[in-house]
């Protein structure tokens, strides 16, 4: 089987999410990549270094700069003429593009796969991860999004792929990119961090969240996450949200502070290696999944913990 993997990038460097998708694709067969972007030759050259990669298709066009689905989907559909599976990291970019491609190919999409069980058989989470479905496709071609935490990352170097230029129709004339407000942070990215400190509704407001959670995260070199309640209340931006409908994380250590543990939150972090919970309610559901629990008022416990580390 020949797979085409979407390379997630910002026109400057390859994003880590790509590497898990490559691992998943390699279980199906030959791995080819697509770099669609603008001024993205450097990205293609870097992508060619990923271990196990064959051809790297580079579509360099201003119309592909922001990965608008309307523009890139026809390009992918063309390339799928000679590939059997389109494999995409389950990032917001991937989730935006893949179903558009699947519908144009008239095939079902298999979302968020956790494992490859056979040529056409995969497992995937349903009901916020409270059930795992094993599904078999009957379509001629596959369109798959890959849950990053479920697959090891392929080596970013050591490969010897060959970059080949391709072109597509460019701008479909349906949509345009206006702007972005992207968070700039010195901290590790949530989805690849080894340690995460997350705060919930109990943190009161953004000043309290910052004053309480950030010093602990700094001490541990951790990324910072949040529950939906903390995001909705404006303590932190939307990209901090961990959960069923936010980011899926699986760090070595996940520290949940003032988070109750609703199923939608657990769906995003219950595959973490060690879960630590600090909550003043000893019956909070988070303690049912926590390896280490501390029943305490976070406003005294967290500063004390930060001080003693």
């Amino acid at each position: 089987m020949k797979t085409l993997v979407w390379v997630e990038h910002d026109n400057a460097s390859v994003k880590d999410a790509t590497l898990s998708a490559v691992t998943a694709a390699a279980k199906l067969g030959e791995v080819h990549l697509l770099v669609a972007g603008s001024g993205a030759r450097g990205v293609a050259d870097a992508a060619a270094q990923i271990a196990g990669v064959g051809k790297v298709h580079l579509a360099d066009d201003a119309a592909y700069e922001h990965a608008l689905a309307e523009n890139v989907a026809p390009l992918i559909v063309d390339l799928m003429g000679h590939h059997d599976a389109f494999v995409v990291p389950a990032t917001t970019t991937g989730k935006n593009i893949a179903p558009r491609v699947a519908a144009l190919l008239d095939v079902a999409q298999i979302s968020d796969i956790l494992s490859v069980e056979g040529d056409k058989t995969f497992t995937r989470p349903i009901y916020a991860g409270n059930a795992i479905a094993t599904v078999e496709s009957s379509d001629a071609k596959l369109v798959i999004t890959v849950r990053g935490t479920a697959f090891a990352k392929a080596e970013a170097t050591g490969g010897s792929g060959v970059v080949e230029d391709v072109s597509g129709a460019g701008d479909a004339g349906l949509s345009s990119f206006v702007g972005a407000e992207l968070a700039k942070s010195e901290r590790p990215e949530l989805t690849s961090a080894k340690i995460i400190v997350s705060g919930g509704r109990a943190l009161k407001d953004s000043e309290t969240f910052e004053a309480t959670i950030l010093p602990l995260a700094d001490k541990l070199g951790a990324a910072v996450g949040a529950s939906r309640a903390a995001v909705d209340a404006g303590y932190v931006p939307n990209d901090y949200q961990v959960g069923q409908t936010g980011k899926i994380v699986a760090p070595e250590v996940y520290i949940a502070v003032g988070i109750s543990g609703a199923i939608q939150h657990l769906a995003g972090m219950k595959d973490s290696k060690t879960i630590i919970a600090i909550n003043k309610d000893e019956d909070a559901p988070i303690f049912q999944v926590a390896d280490i629990g501390l029943v305490a008022d976070l406003f005294t416990a967290v500063p004390e913990l930060t001080g003693k580390l």
Binding site: A131, E136, S138, E282, D291
Partner: peptide
């Protein structure tokens, strides 16, 4: 349907761990 569901299973369950008495024990 284009996808056939071969089976639906429970995810691996996490069992509750321990509770520590205070911050020193957590440290």
């Amino acid at each position: 349907p284009r996808l056939k569901t071969l089976k639906v299973s429970e995810p691996a369950v996490r069992s509750a761990g321990i509770k520590v008495a205070d911050v020193d024990a957590l440290v």
